[in-house]
Computed example of a mutant assay.
Amino acid sequence: MGHLISSTSMLETARANGYGITAFNVHTLEMLQAVVEAAEEAQAPLILQTTVGTVKHLGPEYIVAAASVAAKTSSVPIALHLDHCTDYDLIVRCIRAGYTSVMIDASMHPFEENVRRTAEVVQVAKAAGVNVEAELGKVGGVEDDIVVEEEDARLADPKECVVFVERTGVPTFAPAIGTAHGIYKGEPNIAFHKLEQIFNSVQVPLVLHGGSGIPADQVKRCVSLGMAKMNVATELRIAFSDAIKHIFAQNPEENDPRKYMVPAKEAVKRLAIEKMQLTGCVGRANECKA
């Protein structure tokens, strides 16, 4: 491809054609390489994501450098997204470093303040050709340092969604519909009736948060109702860590990182391909090239 691209056009293409693009939260170079290799093998468009914690851990410049190499050497379109950020200054820093998509999460604020903060980021990002994602309602669970207790989770109101998108101009939108970050303790209680209302009244691509562990039939139904992006974080992290634990269980004295990183990469790659198949983006890379 040559360079990282904005995810706006690829997500608009996905929504228009009835499939979703899987976005993977990566925390190490090996995880990044694994999902890129998966996308290459599957010929699927790819969104790499990093949490605020990962940005602070590695530095946005290092992350952009690694993602840029992936984009340069891969034949599939790749975007780089900053997930769930509440800090305007960090969003600007990531845009300047080369991120091609950012999420301003002001969902914990009252509606008007969420609109104000989102519109402010949209204005800056639009000038840089960068996609923006925003959330309405509250997705439960834990995402880095953002903790939303189950009783505090709140579904998005379809009528408010229309107003929010119109007033902010946000090009991709994450309505809270009953999913949660992390691994589900039971069956997810997705409000499909609300999602259908939002899908029919909001024209921008929708984003499914809390994609780890949602049953396949529910994911497919979400995608059919405009969820053009599905975030996967916890499952990927578990696959990576469990593969490493397995190596140390077999050989506690192992001290060569290459010996345990290779199987960890393979585990992530296998899972990533499964998630790409689930959202229907396998073989769609050529449709999404900028």
Rank of each mutant, 00 (worst) to 15 (best):
G2M: 04
E41S: 14
Q197V: 03
T13E: 12
G210M: 08
L155S: 06
V282P: 04
E12Q: 14
E253K: 12
P205M: 02
S7W: 04
N17S: 08
H3L: 14
L195P: 00
K275N: 06
G141K: 09
H27N: 15
T168H: 04
V202L: 05
N114H: 08
H246Q: 14
V92W: 02
V64F: 04
P263W: 01
K265A: 15
D217H: 14
H246Y: 02
Q33G: 03
E113S: 15
F248R: 02
A176R: 05
T172I: 06
A70K: 05
N286R: 10
S9D: 13
L195H: 04
V202I: 12
V132Q: 11
I177M: 10
E235M: 10
S201Q: 14
N255A: 12
H81G: 08
L82A: 04
R167V: 03
N286Q: 15
Y99S: 12
P158W: 00
I95K: 07
H181W: 07
I247C: 10
S9A: 10
R221P: 09
M261T: 11
T73A: 13
Q43C: 13
H109P: 05
F240T: 04
V35G: 08
R258A: 10
K289R: 14
Y62M: 14
P158G: 04
G53H: 11
T22Q: 11
T234N: 09
Y99F: 15
I91R: 04
I214Q: 06
G210C: 07
V76T: 07
G137W: 01
V204Y: 02
K245H: 09
D144K: 09
T86Y: 08
I91D: 03
E61H: 12
V52F: 08
V147S: 11
N189P: 06
E274T: 11
V223W: 06
S212K: 12
T179F: 01
K275A: 00
S212I: 05
D157V: 02
V170C: 05
V36M: 07
D144F: 05
E287W: 05
A44T: 12
K185P: 00
E12D: 07
V115R: 10
V148F: 12
R237H: 14
F111Q: 13
